[in-house]
Computed example of a mutant assay.
Amino acid sequence: MTDPHKSAVGAATQPAPMVFFLSDSTGITAETLGNTLLTQFPTQGLDRRTIPFITTEEQAHEVVAVIDRVAASGRRPLVFSTAVSPEVRAVLAQSAGHFFDLFGAHIGQLEQALGSSANGLPGQAHGVGDAARYQSRMAAVEYAIEHDDGQSLRALERAELILIAPSRCGKTPTTMYLALQHGILAANFPLVEEDFGSMSLPEPLLPFASKCFGLSSLPVRLSQIRQERRPGSKYASLSQCTYELRNAEDMYRVNNVPHVNSAFMSVEEISATVLQRMHLHH
Protein backbone atom coordinates (compact mmCIF):
# COMPACT_ATOMS: atom_id res chain seq x y z
CA MET A 1 0.00 0.00 0.00
CA THR A 2 1.32 3.44 -0.92
CA ASP A 3 2.13 5.77 1.95
CA PRO A 4 0.23 9.03 1.18
CA HIS A 5 2.74 11.03 3.20
CA LYS A 6 5.64 9.76 1.08
CA SER A 7 3.65 10.49 -2.08
CA ALA A 8 3.01 14.04 -0.94
CA VAL A 9 6.68 14.58 -0.12
CA GLY A 10 7.73 13.17 -3.49
CA ALA A 11 5.28 15.43 -5.32
CA ALA A 12 6.50 18.46 -3.42
CA THR A 13 10.09 17.87 -4.45
CA GLN A 14 9.31 17.36 -8.14
CA PRO A 15 10.81 20.17 -10.26
CA ALA A 16 8.34 22.50 -11.94
CA PRO A 17 7.37 21.51 -15.50
CA MET A 18 9.20 23.49 -18.18
CA VAL A 19 7.44 25.68 -20.70
CA PHE A 20 9.13 26.76 -23.92
CA PHE A 21 7.92 29.75 -25.93
CA LEU A 22 9.35 29.49 -29.44
CA SER A 23 9.32 32.07 -32.20
CA ASP A 24 11.05 33.13 -35.39
CA SER A 25 10.64 36.72 -34.18
CA THR A 26 10.75 38.30 -30.71
CA GLY A 27 8.71 35.65 -28.89
CA ILE A 28 6.33 38.24 -27.42
CA THR A 29 3.27 36.79 -29.12
CA ALA A 30 4.13 33.21 -28.09
CA GLU A 31 4.62 34.38 -24.49
CA THR A 32 1.39 36.38 -24.47
CA LEU A 33 -0.82 33.68 -25.95
CA GLY A 34 0.85 30.83 -24.07
CA ASN A 35 0.75 32.61 -20.73
CA THR A 36 -2.87 33.60 -21.31
CA LEU A 37 -3.77 29.92 -21.65
CA LEU A 38 -1.66 29.03 -18.60
CA THR A 39 -3.51 31.53 -16.40
CA GLN A 40 -6.29 28.95 -16.30
CA PHE A 41 -3.96 26.79 -14.18
CA PRO A 42 -2.95 29.26 -11.44
CA THR A 43 -1.77 26.66 -8.93
CA GLN A 44 0.65 25.04 -11.35
CA GLY A 45 4.26 26.10 -10.84
CA LEU A 46 6.11 26.39 -14.15
CA ASP A 47 9.68 27.02 -15.31
CA ARG A 48 9.42 29.27 -18.37
CA ARG A 49 11.97 29.81 -21.16
CA THR A 50 11.62 31.89 -24.31
CA ILE A 51 13.70 31.14 -27.42
CA PRO A 52 13.28 33.84 -30.09
CA PHE A 53 14.61 34.27 -33.64
CA ILE A 54 14.46 30.64 -34.75
CA THR A 55 14.72 31.44 -38.44
CA THR A 56 16.36 28.35 -40.01
CA GLU A 57 15.75 24.62 -39.94
CA GLU A 58 19.22 24.16 -38.43
CA GLN A 59 18.35 26.44 -35.52
CA ALA A 60 15.04 24.62 -35.12
CA HIS A 61 16.85 21.27 -34.85
CA GLU A 62 19.11 22.75 -32.13
CA VAL A 63 16.05 23.90 -30.17
CA VAL A 64 14.40 20.48 -30.57
CA ALA A 65 17.55 18.89 -29.11
CA VAL A 66 17.23 21.13 -26.03
CA ILE A 67 13.55 20.26 -25.61
CA ASP A 68 14.24 16.53 -26.07
CA ARG A 69 16.92 16.60 -23.37
CA VAL A 70 14.40 18.07 -20.94
CA ALA A 71 11.81 15.47 -21.95
CA ALA A 72 14.36 12.68 -21.50
CA SER A 73 14.86 13.74 -17.88
CA GLY A 74 11.27 12.72 -17.19
CA ARG A 75 9.72 16.20 -17.45
CA ARG A 76 7.90 16.37 -20.77
CA PRO A 77 7.75 20.14 -21.37
CA LEU A 78 5.00 22.30 -22.82
CA VAL A 79 6.00 23.95 -26.10
CA PHE A 80 4.14 26.99 -27.47
CA SER A 81 5.21 28.09 -30.94
CA THR A 82 4.33 31.04 -33.16
CA ALA A 83 6.90 30.22 -35.85
CA VAL A 84 5.61 31.36 -39.25
CA SER A 85 7.83 29.34 -41.61
CA PRO A 86 6.20 25.97 -42.46
CA GLU A 87 9.66 24.35 -42.59
CA VAL A 88 10.65 25.64 -39.16
CA ARG A 89 7.25 24.69 -37.71
CA ALA A 90 7.58 21.17 -39.09
CA VAL A 91 10.94 20.68 -37.37
CA LEU A 92 9.76 22.11 -34.04
CA ALA A 93 6.69 19.87 -34.12
CA GLN A 94 9.02 16.83 -34.01
CA SER A 95 10.14 17.63 -30.47
CA ALA A 96 9.28 15.31 -27.60
CA GLY A 97 7.37 18.10 -25.83
CA HIS A 98 3.63 18.74 -25.78
CA PHE A 99 3.61 20.93 -28.92
CA PHE A 100 1.05 23.75 -29.35
CA ASP A 101 1.26 25.40 -32.77
CA LEU A 102 -0.38 28.78 -32.08
CA PHE A 103 0.21 29.95 -35.65
CA GLY A 104 -0.30 26.96 -37.89
CA ALA A 105 -3.48 25.91 -36.11
CA HIS A 106 -5.33 28.92 -37.52
CA ILE A 107 -3.51 30.16 -40.61
CA GLY A 108 -5.29 27.70 -42.91
CA GLN A 109 -8.69 28.81 -41.66
CA LEU A 110 -7.73 32.45 -42.23
CA GLU A 111 -6.52 31.76 -45.76
CA GLN A 112 -9.82 30.11 -46.54
CA ALA A 113 -11.88 32.89 -44.94
CA LEU A 114 -9.95 35.71 -46.66
CA GLY A 115 -9.49 33.93 -49.97
CA SER A 116 -5.76 34.64 -50.08
CA SER A 117 -2.49 33.08 -49.02
CA ALA A 118 -0.41 34.12 -46.00
CA ASN A 119 2.86 35.79 -46.91
CA GLY A 120 4.88 33.58 -44.55
CA LEU A 121 7.01 36.47 -43.31
CA PRO A 122 8.04 36.41 -39.63
CA GLY A 123 8.20 39.43 -37.34
CA GLN A 124 5.07 41.19 -38.56
CA ALA A 125 3.42 41.59 -35.16
CA HIS A 126 6.36 43.19 -33.32
CA GLY A 127 8.62 44.38 -36.10
CA VAL A 128 8.67 47.60 -38.11
CA GLY A 129 6.68 46.24 -41.03
CA ASP A 130 4.02 48.90 -40.45
CA ALA A 131 6.39 51.85 -40.34
CA ALA A 132 3.70 54.44 -39.64
CA ARG A 133 2.28 52.53 -36.68
CA TYR A 134 5.75 51.85 -35.31
CA GLN A 135 6.71 55.52 -35.49
CA SER A 136 3.42 56.46 -33.85
CA ARG A 137 4.15 54.16 -30.91
CA MET A 138 7.69 55.47 -30.50
CA ALA A 139 6.45 59.07 -30.57
CA ALA A 140 3.88 58.16 -27.93
CA VAL A 141 6.58 56.63 -25.70
CA GLU A 142 8.67 59.82 -25.98
CA TYR A 143 5.59 61.88 -25.09
CA ALA A 144 4.84 59.66 -22.06
CA ILE A 145 8.42 59.98 -20.80
CA GLU A 146 8.41 63.78 -21.15
CA HIS A 147 5.03 64.08 -19.41
CA ASP A 148 5.62 61.54 -16.65
CA ASP A 149 4.55 62.57 -13.14
CA GLY A 150 3.77 66.14 -14.22
CA GLN A 151 7.39 66.86 -15.23
CA SER A 152 6.27 68.87 -18.25
CA LEU A 153 3.08 70.76 -19.03
CA ARG A 154 4.24 71.50 -22.57
CA ALA A 155 1.87 70.45 -25.35
CA LEU A 156 -0.76 69.04 -23.00
CA GLU A 157 -3.26 69.97 -25.68
CA ARG A 158 -1.82 67.11 -27.75
CA ALA A 159 -2.58 64.55 -25.05
CA GLU A 160 -5.30 62.03 -25.78
CA LEU A 161 -5.35 61.04 -22.12
CA ILE A 162 -4.17 62.51 -18.81
CA LEU A 163 -4.01 60.03 -15.94
CA ILE A 164 -4.34 61.61 -12.50
CA ALA A 165 -3.87 59.93 -9.14
CA PRO A 166 -2.00 60.11 -5.84
CA SER A 167 1.55 58.79 -5.93
CA ARG A 168 2.09 55.02 -6.51
CA CYS A 169 -1.36 54.20 -7.88
CA GLY A 170 0.00 53.00 -11.23
CA LYS A 171 0.09 56.13 -13.40
CA THR A 172 3.54 55.67 -14.96
CA PRO A 173 3.37 51.99 -15.97
CA THR A 174 -0.11 52.52 -17.39
CA THR A 175 0.83 55.51 -19.55
CA MET A 176 3.94 53.72 -20.77
CA TYR A 177 1.96 50.59 -21.64
CA LEU A 178 -0.69 52.62 -23.48
CA ALA A 179 2.04 54.39 -25.44
CA LEU A 180 4.09 51.33 -26.33
CA GLN A 181 1.23 48.96 -27.08
CA HIS A 182 -1.41 51.31 -28.46
CA GLY A 183 0.35 54.50 -29.52
CA ILE A 184 -1.77 56.63 -27.15
CA LEU A 185 -0.38 60.08 -26.33
CA ALA A 186 -0.75 59.83 -22.56
CA ALA A 187 0.46 62.18 -19.84
CA ASN A 188 0.18 61.60 -16.12
CA PHE A 189 -0.16 64.09 -13.30
CA PRO A 190 0.32 63.42 -9.56
CA LEU A 191 -2.25 64.59 -7.04
CA VAL A 192 -0.53 65.90 -3.91
CA GLU A 193 -1.80 67.25 -0.61
CA GLU A 194 -1.85 70.83 -1.92
CA ASP A 195 -4.35 69.81 -4.59
CA PHE A 196 -6.93 68.81 -1.99
CA GLY A 197 -7.55 72.33 -0.60
CA SER A 198 -10.52 72.56 -2.95
CA MET A 199 -12.32 69.93 -4.97
CA SER A 200 -11.29 71.57 -8.22
CA LEU A 201 -8.89 69.86 -10.60
CA PRO A 202 -5.31 71.20 -10.44
CA GLU A 203 -5.17 74.45 -12.41
CA PRO A 204 -2.98 73.16 -15.29
CA LEU A 205 -5.57 70.45 -15.98
CA LEU A 206 -8.68 72.63 -16.04
CA PRO A 207 -8.64 73.18 -19.82
CA PHE A 208 -8.25 69.44 -20.35
CA ALA A 209 -10.80 68.02 -17.91
CA SER A 210 -12.42 65.90 -20.62
CA LYS A 211 -9.11 64.08 -21.15
CA CYS A 212 -8.61 63.19 -17.48
CA PHE A 213 -9.00 59.72 -16.03
CA GLY A 214 -8.44 58.99 -12.35
CA LEU A 215 -6.82 56.06 -10.59
CA SER A 216 -7.47 55.11 -7.00
CA SER A 217 -6.45 52.28 -4.69
CA LEU A 218 -7.10 50.81 -1.26
CA PRO A 219 -5.38 52.59 1.66
CA VAL A 220 -3.77 49.40 3.01
CA ARG A 221 -2.49 48.40 -0.42
CA LEU A 222 -1.15 51.89 -1.18
CA SER A 223 0.54 52.07 2.22
CA GLN A 224 2.28 48.73 1.57
CA ILE A 225 3.61 49.95 -1.78
CA ARG A 226 4.79 53.27 -0.35
CA GLN A 227 6.49 51.54 2.60
CA GLU A 228 8.76 49.81 0.11
CA ARG A 229 9.82 53.22 -1.19
CA ARG A 230 9.95 55.25 2.03
CA PRO A 231 9.58 52.97 5.07
CA GLY A 232 8.28 54.60 8.23
CA SER A 233 7.48 57.95 6.55
CA LYS A 234 4.31 60.02 6.81
CA TYR A 235 4.03 59.58 3.03
CA ALA A 236 3.63 55.82 3.54
CA SER A 237 1.43 55.95 6.64
CA LEU A 238 -2.03 54.43 6.49
CA SER A 239 -3.62 57.70 7.62
CA GLN A 240 -1.93 59.70 4.84
CA CYS A 241 -2.88 57.16 2.19
CA THR A 242 -6.48 57.14 3.42
CA TYR A 243 -6.59 60.94 3.33
CA GLU A 244 -5.19 61.22 -0.19
CA LEU A 245 -7.36 58.49 -1.68
CA ARG A 246 -10.56 59.80 -0.08
CA ASN A 247 -9.89 63.31 -1.37
CA ALA A 248 -8.85 62.10 -4.81
CA GLU A 249 -12.06 60.09 -5.20
CA ASP A 250 -14.12 63.09 -4.06
CA MET A 251 -12.32 65.21 -6.67
CA TYR A 252 -13.10 62.68 -9.38
CA ARG A 253 -16.78 62.63 -8.50
CA VAL A 254 -17.18 66.40 -8.23
CA ASN A 255 -15.50 66.95 -11.60
CA ASN A 256 -17.12 63.98 -13.38
CA VAL A 257 -13.73 62.37 -13.97
CA PRO A 258 -14.08 58.66 -14.78
CA HIS A 259 -11.94 56.56 -12.50
CA VAL A 260 -11.11 53.03 -11.41
CA ASN A 261 -9.66 51.39 -8.32
CA SER A 262 -6.37 49.91 -9.51
CA ALA A 263 -5.41 48.17 -6.26
CA PHE A 264 -5.50 44.62 -7.60
CA MET A 265 -5.53 45.26 -11.35
CA SER A 266 -2.67 44.51 -13.72
CA VAL A 267 -1.33 47.23 -16.02
CA GLU A 268 -3.02 45.43 -18.91
CA GLU A 269 -6.39 45.46 -17.11
CA ILE A 270 -6.09 49.12 -16.15
CA SER A 271 -5.16 50.04 -19.71
CA ALA A 272 -8.06 48.08 -21.23
CA THR A 273 -10.46 49.79 -18.83
CA VAL A 274 -9.10 53.23 -19.68
CA LEU A 275 -9.30 52.57 -23.44
CA GLN A 276 -12.87 51.38 -23.18
CA ARG A 277 -14.21 54.10 -20.91
CA MET A 278 -12.39 56.94 -22.69
CA HIS A 279 -13.26 55.57 -26.15
CA LEU A 280 -9.62 55.59 -27.22
CA HIS A 281 -8.93 53.29 -30.14
CA HIS A 282 -6.09 53.55 -32.65
Results as ranks from 00 to 15, higher is better:
residue 2 T to M: 08
residue 3 D to Y: 01
residue 4 P to K: 01
residue 4 P to E: 00
residue 8 A to C: 11
residue 11 A to K: 13
residue 13 T to I: 08
residue 17 P to A: 10
residue 18 M to V: 09
residue 22 L to P: 08
residue 24 D to W: 05
residue 25 S to V: 04
residue 25 S to I: 06
residue 28 I to A: 09
residue 30 A to N: 08
residue 33 L to E: 06
residue 36 T to Y: 13
residue 37 L to K: 02
residue 41 F to Q: 15
residue 41 F to D: 04
residue 44 Q to N: 09
residue 46 L to F: 14
residue 46 L to Y: 11
residue 47 D to H: 10
residue 50 T to A: 09
residue 50 T to V: 05
residue 52 P to H: 01
residue 54 I to C: 12
residue 55 T to G: 10
residue 55 T to V: 12
residue 61 H to F: 11
residue 63 V to P: 08
residue 65 A to I: 02
residue 67 I to M: 13
residue 68 D to Q: 08
residue 69 R to S: 11
residue 73 S to E: 12
residue 75 R to Y: 05
residue 76 R to D: 10
residue 80 F to S: 02
residue 81 S to M: 06
residue 81 S to F: 07
residue 81 S to A: 11
residue 82 T to N: 08
residue 84 V to N: 07
residue 85 S to P: 05
residue 88 V to D: 09
residue 90 A to Y: 02
residue 95 S to E: 06
residue 96 A to D: 15
residue 104 G to P: 09
residue 108 G to V: 10
residue 108 G to T: 12
residue 116 S to A: 09
residue 118 A to R: 14
residue 124 Q to E: 10
residue 126 H to K: 09
residue 126 H to P: 10
residue 130 D to Y: 08
residue 131 A to D: 12
residue 133 R to T: 14
residue 133 R to Q: 14
residue 136 S to G: 15
residue 140 A to P: 13
residue 150 G to Y: 01
residue 153 L to Q: 05
residue 155 A to Q: 13
residue 156 L to K: 00
residue 158 R to Q: 11
residue 159 A to S: 01
residue 160 E to G: 00
residue 163 L to T: 00
residue 166 P to T: 04
residue 166 P to A: 03
residue 171 K to H: 03
residue 173 P to Q: 01
residue 177 Y to P: 12
residue 180 L to M: 12
residue 180 L to Q: 14
residue 185 L to N: 06
residue 187 A to M: 02
residue 190 P to G: 03
residue 196 F to P: 00
residue 196 F to H: 07
residue 197 G to M: 12
residue 208 F to M: 00
residue 213 F to T: 05
residue 218 L to Y: 12
residue 219 P to N: 04
residue 221 R to Q: 14
residue 225 I to Q: 05
residue 226 R to P: 00
residue 228 E to W: 07
residue 229 R to C: 05
residue 232 G to K: 01
residue 235 Y to C: 00
residue 235 Y to F: 10
residue 236 A to S: 14
residue 238 L to F: 09
residue 239 S to N: 11
residue 242 T to P: 07
residue 244 E to I: 02
residue 248 A to Q: 07
residue 248 A to P: 04
residue 256 N to S: 13
residue 259 H to P: 00
residue 260 V to N: 09
residue 263 A to I: 06
residue 264 F to L: 07
residue 269 E to H: 05
residue 274 V to M: 14
residue 274 V to Q: 15
residue 275 L to E: 14
residue 276 Q to F: 10
residue 277 R to W: 15
residue 280 L to Q: 10
